[in-house]
C-alpha cells in the first residue's frame, strides 16, 4: 500500500527505526550521531576519530560503494561508538573540571544572595512610616524602607555569570 507521506516515512525510519528494519543513513548524519556518542572524549580526540571515519567513508564511496553501503560496512552506530570508547585510554577522556565547578558554585551562591536581597527589597513595598510611642512619651518616627542594597553583590553576580560563561565558551571552542 503506497504511503501518502514518503518523505516523512523516510525521516521516521532514520530517527526511529523499528527493530530489524533497514535504515538508510547518510555519511554526514552517521558522523554527526557518532560524534554525539563520543561526547565524553576530549575535543581534539573526538575530532581525530571523526576525521578518520570521514576519510574512510569517503574512500569507500570513491571506490564504488554507495553512501549507505559504506555506512553499513562500518557497522552499527552503538557498537562502533562502544568500541571506540573502549579503545581510548584515560587521557583521551574529558576529566573532571574543579575550576569550572568552582566558578559555577560561586556564581550560584552570588545569585542566590542577590535574589534574596532583591526579594527582600521589593517585598518591603517602598517606604513606610510607622509611629512608635504614645501620647505622653517621646515619639519617634521610624522610617523603614530603602535600606542600602548590596550593589556590590549584584555587580559581583553579573561579573561571575560573565566569567563563568566565558570560561565554558573558551573550553568548548579552544
Amino acid at each position: 500500500m503506497p504511503s501518502d507521506d514518503p518523505a516523512g516515512d523516510a525521516k521516521r525510519r532514520v530517527l526511529f527505526p523499528k527493530k530489524g528494519e533497514k535504515t538508510t543513513v547518510k555519511k554526514e548524519e552517521y558522523l554527526k550521531k557518532l560524534g554525539k556518542k563520543l561526547r565524553k572524549l576530549k575535543n581534539h580526540e573526538r575530532t581525530r576519530q571523526l576525521e578518520y571515519f570521514d576519510e574512510i567513508l569517503t574512500d569507500m564511496m570513491e571506490n564504488g560503494m554507495t553512501e549507505e553501503e559504506a555506512v553499513e560496512k562500518i557497522g552499527d552506530l552503538e557498537k562502533t561508538a562502544k568500541e571506540i570508547l573502549e579503545q581510548c585510554d584515560r587521557e583521551s577522556f574529558k576529566g573532571n573540571d574543579p575550576k569550572g565547578m568552582g566558578l559555577v558554585a560561586v556564581t550560584v551562591l552570588c545569585g542566590i544572595g542577590s535574589l534574596g536581597f532583591l526579594a527582600g527589597h521589593y517585598l518591603r513595598s517602598g517606604i513606610s512610616i510607622s509611629y512608635i510611642g504614645g501620647a505622653d512619651g517621646p515619639t519617634s518616627v521610624f522610617i523603614a524602607g530603602k535600606i542600602g542594597q548590596p550593589v556590590w553583590l549584584y555587580g559581583m553576580t553579573v561579573f561571575m555569570v560573565g566569567a563563568t560563561a566565558v570560561y565554558f565558551w573558551r573550553k568548548k571552542h579552544l
Partner: peptide, 23 residues
C-alpha cells in the same frame, strides 16, 4: 599507505575492520 588501503590490503590475510584499524 592510508586507512582505506591498509584495510583493503590486509583483508586478504586477516580479518580487520575499520574500527579496529584506527586504534
Amino acid at each position: 599507505s592510508y586507512g582505506y588501503q591498509i584495510i583493503k590490503d590486509l583483508t586478504e590475510w586477516i580479518e580487520i575492520s575499520e574500527s579496529t584499524l584506527y586504534p
